[in-house]
């Protein structure tokens, strides 16, 4: 089935609500036949992305919202997550795998998103995240 479905949900800055949307997206992936491995990766990327939008973007402000849009078909999912924060420059986020950062507790979310999704990009000054995953695609490998 190659029908593409689109969804558009706005939630308050509440990670429990974010997890409900995560479950909804996972349901739509499963309905379109995504493999367990792909579902794992997308779910993890969503967790990191939504928590970042709520915590670092909106700084947990209950007056601010996060808008989550996604489109999915049998081979592809694209998710756009927009917060109402000030944005940030992704280049300013240090590489958590550098030796001097390896034992620091933070900074791994974006790296995990990039690894598990096919593409990850920031727009609108950093408060709009667009990421997609082509299913069945292997993650990049060095060898």
């Amino acid at each position: 089935m190659s029908t593409t479905e689109s969804f558009d949900v706005t939630i308050p800055s509440d990670t429990a609500k974010g997890r409900e949307v995560q479950d909804q997206i996972v349901e739509s992936l499963e309905a379109h036949g995504f493999s367990a491995r792909d579902v794992f990766g997308v779910r993890l990327a969503l967790e990191e992305a939504i928590v970042n939008a709520i915590k670092h973007g909106n700084r947990m402000d209950p007056e601010k919202n996060v808008r989550i849009q996604w489109e999915v078909n049998a081979s592809y999912v694209k998710v756009t997550i927009e917060d109402q924060g000030e944005g940030f420059d992704v280049e300013d986020v240090p590489d958590p795998t550098d030796d001097e950062n390896l034992d620091k507790p933070g900074g791994r979310g974006i790296m995990l998103m990039r690894s598990f999704m096919s593409h990850v990009a920031y727009d609108g000054g950093g408060n709009i995240l667009i990421m997609d995953k082509r299913c069945g695609e292997e993650e990049e490998s060095d060898d």
Binding site: F40, P105, G107, G109
Partner: peptide, 16 residues
């Protein structure tokens, strides 16, 4: 079955 980067942070602190 699932863990996030926030959980990894706690494990790193524990290791230290």
């Amino acid at each position: 079955e699932y863990l996030s980067s926030a959980a990894l942070g706690k494990l790193i602190t524990m290791d230290k």
